[in-house]
């Protein structure tokens, strides 16, 4: 097995791990971290698969995509964090309440 596939599978593993954490943890900060781990997994897949052959130079396009993706992830995380603080200020909880409004 080439190291390209190894890295790609590692990325998929991170994605699945993040998804699992997102589902089972109630604390919002953990959920936000889980989303970030998932994102990192996707970026790892993109970067790993950019090298089509072990010896050839890697394709630069996925690298550009990852940079764009990181910018998006940072802004999304910033929004998520401030929203979390607002939720905490309004409800005193760091979890989402389950029921419908009222």
């Amino acid at each position: 097995m080439s190291y390209i596939i190894l890295y790609a599978l590692l990325g998929v593993g991170l994605f699945v791990l993040g998804l699992y954490a997102l589902i089972i943890h109630a604390h919002l900060l953990r959920k936000i971290l889980a989303i970030n781990v998932m994102g990192t997994g996707v970026f790892l897949v993109l970067v790993a698969l950019a090298a089509r052959h072990q010896d050839a130079p890697p394709d630069p396009v996925p690298h550009a995509m990852v940079i764009t993706g990181i910018v998006v992830a940072v802004s999304a995380t910033a929004l998520a964090l401030i929203l979390m603080l607002k939720v905490y200020a309004a409800t005193g909880k760091t979890e989402l309440h389950d029921g419908k409004p009222d």
């Binding site: 994102g39 897949v45 929004l79 998520a80 979390m84």
Partner: peptide, 20 residues
Amino acid sequence: LNAAMRYLLVSLLGSLFYLL
């Protein structure tokens, strides 16, 4: 705020699946 937070998490999750 609760609805917005849930919406954000769902939205990010959906985008990540799409990006993969």
